[in-house]
Amino acid sequence: MLKHKIGTRKEIVTNGDIAIHVSDLHKSFKLPTEKAFGLKQAFFNRLRGIKGFKEQKVLNGLNFDIKKGEFIGIVGRNGSGKSTLLKTLAGIYYPQKGEIIIDGNLIPFIELGVGFNPELTGRENVYLNGAMLGFSNKEINDMYEKIWDFAELKDFQDQKLKNYSSGMQVRLAFSIAIRARGDILLLDEVLAVGDAAFQQKCNDYFASLKGKQTVILVTHSMENVVKFCNRAILIEDGKIKHDGNPKKIAEAYRKLWN
């Protein structure tokens, strides 16, 4: 299907001090040019010698190492490849070329509340979403009270999720997510949830992670980059443009539009 030799993504456990090693990482997507969803169109495209897709390069040879315990921010414009990088690190996308080596247990939060179903009650959704994060029923039982305490939604646990406001849903999802215990956390734009009081709670949680865990945070908020990260990477057109001190990266990010 792909012309290139396919890249690799390995998960290992060692005592080394590198949490994630990425070398020469490439990823491109095939974007259908004409509506190619359908046998008829695929057949006609082949007859006319149209490939039916064009290749869109998203990651163009990334190289970096992340040390254990680093809180690293990944920034860049929309479409620069941040989310694709995160999804490739998480194992959702397959690298086309290059190598990813992950040392330790990696927990991705590409989105909060994966698998949430509006027709189920809050309680049922906690178990369902928990399963997505790898928690057994017993493990959820043990942390059940804490989840609802943190979310401040105790009175709603037996209501169907469709009767929750969107803010309430995110709060519940966030409360489950922070229970996940891994060596490496991947976070995609999940900082800004809920009202001011809840945000304060979230900020406290992230501050508590700093120095203890490897965290990779994709965000557009330079304020958060400076506040939480001890290193940042600026991505432009699928390549690393700057890598280093969060303050300098925040500066460089603002300059992208000037």
């Binding site: 027709e119 189920l120 399963a131 790898g134 057994s136």
Partner: peptide
């Protein structure tokens, strides 16, 4: 492995529950 078993069990339960919801 444990994680996959949990996921399989929970998805099956949900499918079954949702089928006759309402």
């Amino acid at each position: 492995n444990k994680k996959n078993r949990i996921l399989l069990a929970e998805l099956t339960k949900t499918d079954f529950k949702l089928r006759y919801q309402g």
